[in-house]
Every structure is written in structure tokens, then in C-alpha cells.
């Protein structure tokens, strides 16, 4: 505090004009909610890697069945129960067509005089597992996406209407939900699937029939939270009509949580499809889904573990990827985490 006062050049002490509007300038570039969220998401390595993995899996689900020229439905008993054999990798000592035959390691391809490569091996009917795996992934993803879409539409509409209009409408709608939510999902899903003709449609309906409730509750809670906040009241005071308040003021705020929730509905649907197919009441043979493939693999696990292994890996990676993306989105979109 006790610095000597030094002599400074006099011109330094000229007064200057400060344009005070200059000081109001905002230093940081302004970011929209979604730009900001994207910047955050981009920093989340796990979520980004998961996105890449997911895109790869979706591409494989679409093109995979056509990659190696085998038909997933074609049975060829002469080629049954062949272990995986992949060109290139076979030289590493894995996936080289060597399998167990009564306790001994034998090159089954040589023994059965098979010249083709079955990358992931064949099942007991001689069907190519690589092709079937990606066909199954395709079906599982299809079921999951459609089920999630149905949940999304019904859940957002139901929750939105209930929350926005409130009053008697909300009362009646919430009494219904309160009863429905008491019914365990698993029970509903199993009962529905038993009643309907087995197939993709039945599974989708069974999963969606109560799936939307979670979404509707979240949307309602959010709408209730925002609709009485000052910015909405302000808009209302200015004479904004309902549809504009919903579209311009409420939806952008609720959208984040809808996206997050959908990201968790999808893996849930994948799980239920696989679960149903695994216990034998989902898709019926010869149709393939990840669940039926795992079920097939489980039956022959002792002798042909590869039949089980590949669909297990795919479903696990798929579920992990969706969960990590969901987590990443939640962190990115949750304004509470903002620093």
C-alpha cells in the first residue's frame, strides 16, 4: 500500500472519452440452447464414441445381410454347425474354422469339405449366422424404433394435454394413469403378447401399450413446471394464443427431456423384444431377432458357444451405446449442470 508516488509522463493523465455502450458489449458469442448442448455433448467422449458405434451398427444392420452372399434363410444341412471362419483373421489362430468334435479340435471346414467362408459360422440348420445376426439386429432395431416412436407420440400428446389444460381434464387423465402405472409393465407385455398373433406387430403393440406412461408423466411434470413460470405468464399477458405458447414457449423447454427420455425408451424396447423372444413367446422361427438368436445360441452353448457369443455382443454393445448417448444427452441438456 505504501508505494512511492513516481513521476509519470504528463500526457498519460489526459482524460479520455469512454463510450459506455462499448462496455455493454457481450464478450462471449451467444449460443442457442441446442448449440450449447452440442458443445457439451461433443466433450463427452463416451457419448461421441457411442454415436459412432451406433451408426456403424445401424449401417451393418442394413447392409450386413448382403455382405457375404449367403442367404440367412437358406438351410444347408451339409454345412450345419460350422464354426466361424473369416479370411485374413483366420491366420491369427482365431476364427479359423477349427471347432470341437467330440472333444478334439478339428478344422471342420476341411473335414466337411466346405470351401465357402461362414464368417460367424452356421447354426444347426446350416444357415449363415453372420447374415442372420444382422437380419436380427435389423428387426430388433426396427421394433425398438417403432415402439419408441409410438411411446413418444402418445406420451407427449397425453402428458401435454393433461398438463397444459389442467383442471378436470388433468384430474381424469391422471386418475387413469395412476391405475395404469400400478400394473407392472412385464405383466402387461406378457399378457398382450400371448393374446395376439406372434410377430413384429404384436411385440410392438405389447411394448407400447403401457410404454407411453413414463413419457406422459415426464412431459406433464415439465409442462406443469413451465406453464406457470413468468415467461409464459408474460406471453399470456401479451395475448399469445395457446398453440403459440405451446409451440414457442413450452415445447423448446420440454424438448430436451423428451429427447433424453426417448434415448432410454429405445434400449428398453430392445430389451423387452429380446426378453420375450428369449423366453420363447416373442418372434417365432424362422424369423431372427437378437432375442431369438440368443435363445438359439443358449441351447447349443455347450458345443457351439459362437452361436451365442455374437448376438450377445451385438445386443450388449447396442444397449451400452444407447445408454451412454442418453447419459451424455442428459448431461448436455440439463441446465442444472451448467457452470
Amino acid at each position: 500500500m505504501k508505494k512511492d508516488i513516481e513521476k509519470l509522463p504528463q500526457d498519460q493523465f489526459e482524460r479520455i472519452e469512454i463510450d459506455s455502450s462499448h462496455a455493454e458489449r457481450i464478450e462471449k458469442p451467444s449460443l442457442s440452447f441446442w448449440q450449447d448442448a452440442w458443445l457439451r455433448l461433443r466433450k463427452n467422449k463416451a457419448a461421441i464414441v457411442s454415436m459412432v458405434v451406433l451408426v456403424l451398427l445401424v449401417i451393418m444392420a442394413l447392409v450386413g445381410p448382403h455382405l457375404n452372399g449367403h442367404d440367412g434363410a437358406a438351410q444347408n444341412l451339409r454345412h450345419a454347425n460350422l464354426p466361424p471362419k473369416m479370411p485374413g483373421i483366420e491366420k491369427l489362430g482365431i476364427m479359423d474354422g477349427v471347432g470341437n468334435l467330440s472333444g478334439e479340435k478339428v478344422d471342420l471346414y476341411a473335414m466337411k469339405k466346405v470351401d465357402e467362408y461362414y464368417w460367424f459360422g452356421t447354426d444347426g440348420l446350416g444357415r449363415d449366422l453372420f447374415t442372420r445376426l444382422w437380419e436380427g439386429t435389423q428387426i430388433s432395431l426396427l421394433i425398438a424404433f417403432v415402439a419408441a416412436l409410438i411411446d413418444l407420440v402418445i406420451g407427449v400428446l397425453y402428458g401435454g394435454i393433461s398438463g397444459y389444460f389442467g383442471g378436470r381434464t388433468d384430474d381424469v387423465m391422471q386418475r387413469i394413469v395412476e391405475i395404469l402405472i400400478g400394473i407392472p409393465t412385464l405383466i402387461v407385455v406378457i399378457l398382450m403378447i400371448m393374446v395376439m398373433e406372434p410377430g413384429i406387430g404384436a411385440i410392438i403393440i405389447a411394448i407400447s401399450i403401457t410404454g407411453w406412461i413414463g413419457m406422459s408423466r415426464i412431459v406433464r411434470a415439465q409442462i406443469l413446471k413451465y406453464k406457470n413460470q413468468e415467461f409464459v405468464l408474460a406471453a399470456r399477458t401479451l395475448g399469445t394464443n395457446d398453440s403459440r405458447i405451446i409451440g414457442k414457449h413450452l415445447m423448446p423447454n420440454v424438448l430436451g427431456i423428451i429427447v433424453i427420455n426417448t434415448m432410454f425408451t429405445i434400449p428398453n424396447a430392445i430389451f423387452f423384444e429380446a426378453f420375450l423372444s428369449f423366453i420363447g413367446i416373442g418372434l417365432q422361427p424362422p424369423a431372427a431377432s437378437l432375442g431369438t438368436l440368443i435363445n438359439d445360441g443358449f441351447k447349443v452353448m455347450e458345443f457351439q458357444p459362437y452361436v451365442l457369443l455374437f448376438p450377445c455382443i451385438v445386443i450388449s454393445v447396442l444397449m451400452i451405446a444407447f445408454n451412454l448417448i442418453g447419459d451424455g444427452l442428459r448431461d448436455a441438456l440439463d441446465p442444472k449442470m451448467k457452470d
Binding site: 505504501k2 500526457d11 479520455i16 459506455s20
Partner: peptide, 20 residues
Amino acid sequence: ALRSEYALKIDMEQPPPFFR
């Protein structure tokens, strides 16, 4: 200084010390 109407040229270059 940027918000002050009393800013001097030196305010832009050197932080002021404490004056008694």
C-alpha cells in the same frame, strides 16, 4: 476504466496503485 466517465489514458495501460 471501461465503465467510468472519469477514465484517464493511463487507466488503459497500467493498473493504479493504492494512494493514501
